[in-house]
């Protein structure tokens, strides 16, 4: 490498290190691409609260909603790479761009760590004639497109996972979030739904909603006694995850500081208890493996997203 370039690189590295040495010197913004009061928002607030203690500066939540997460994540990816804007990224980062609903994809971020993963759970109302997952599958086979599914988000990756794997079709009724799809189920207007356990745990514990199957890899601790899809003989897994990321050119030292702070937060007994109490899953993946995780996830989602694209008429 020629002299001037070497000097320039050294200067950059030194200044980067100096910059990082004082970090953080003021509040850090955490962009949450979903509405205040929702599941992603709750996870963000708790992990931020704990990580802030380690970093010594407050972490302020900024809800930037829109486009099922696309707006907030786009802003996060394009923000200044100085470590003062962190973004909570979710599985939509891997799915939306494949159907032209987002301008950002995993490679537009520098991942910090994954903090949470929640499986989908199949729910029916308490007096439903559908007593088991088999009833749903057979009902859909007998009368394709007649069983009413209350969908909390469009496109619905959870239902699509089930549809593509098992070759079924349902009558999807669109709703704006679990806050609308769950009442639809409670009121008997739809036959079943798929949400994350934390979104319906209160109704499940009260017996208003009955979980028929959980779509995780192995038995899910938060829902003891509920069989997994695989145990029932259906090879369907569906989940969502949430993690943290910064813009791509953020100095390495700063990203590492963030990762260590968030790791401490996730490992803390406070966080573990908090998430367990609310039936939110904890899963930690460090920065080094997070990008691979996301790229593999995007690949896994590709067949489903292709179907969505076809449905959109493209």
């Amino acid at each position: 490498m020629c002299r001037p370039t070497l000097v320039a690189c050294l200067a950059l590295a030194v200044s980067g290190a100096l910059f990082a040495a004082g970090y953080p010197e003021k509040e850090i913004r955490l962009i949450v691409p979903f509405a205040a009061g929702g599941g992603t928002d709750a996870v963000a607030r708790i992990v931020a609260d704990l990580a802030a203690k380690d970093l010594g500066q407050p972490i302020v939540i900024m809800n930037k909603t829109g486009g099922a997460g696309a707006v907030g994540m786009t802003e996060g990816a394009r923000s200044r790479p100085d470590g003062y804007t962190v973004t909570m990224i979710t599985r939509e980062l891997c799915s939306l761009y494949q159907v032209d609903l987002s301008l950002v994809q995993p490679k537009d971020f520098l991942p910090v760590c994954l903090v949470n993963e929640d499986p989908a759970v199949v729910l029916v109302p308490k007096n439903s004639p559908l007593k088991s997952l088999k009833d749903i599958v057979e009902g859909a086979r007998a009368r394709p497109g007649s069983l009413k599914f209350a969908s909390s988000a469009q496109p619905n990756i959870y239902l699509l996972a089930m549809m593509t794997e098992l070759g079924l079709s349902f009558n999807q009724i669109p709703y704006g979030g679990a806050g609308e799809s769950i009442p639809a189920l409670l009121g008997g207007h739809c036959d079943f739904t798929m949400v994350n356990p934390g979104e319906a745990i209160a109704q499940i514990r009260a017996g208003e909603l009955i979980p028929l199957a959980v779509c995780s890899d192995g038995p899910y601790a938060g829902l003891p006694g509920v069989p997994t899809m695989r145990e029932l003989g259906y090879n369907v897994t569906a989940s969502t995850w949430r993690g943290l990321a910064v813009p791509p050119r953020t100095p390495r030292e700063i990203a590492e500081k963030l990762e260590s702070a968030f790791k401490k937060a996730v490992d803390s007994p406070e966080f573990q208890k908090f998430m367990a109490d609310r039936t939110l899953g904890v899963r930690f993946i460090p920065a080094a493996e997070y990008m691979d995780f996301m790229l593999r996830d995007a690949e896994a989602l590709a067949p489903i997203m292709k179907i969505v694209k076809a449905q959109q008429g493209k």
Binding site: N171, Q172, Q311, Q312, G313
Partner: peptide, 8 residues
């Protein structure tokens, strides 16, 4: 505007 959700 593409019509996608079928005839219903």
């Amino acid at each position: 505007f593409r019509h996608a959700a079928g005839d219903n």
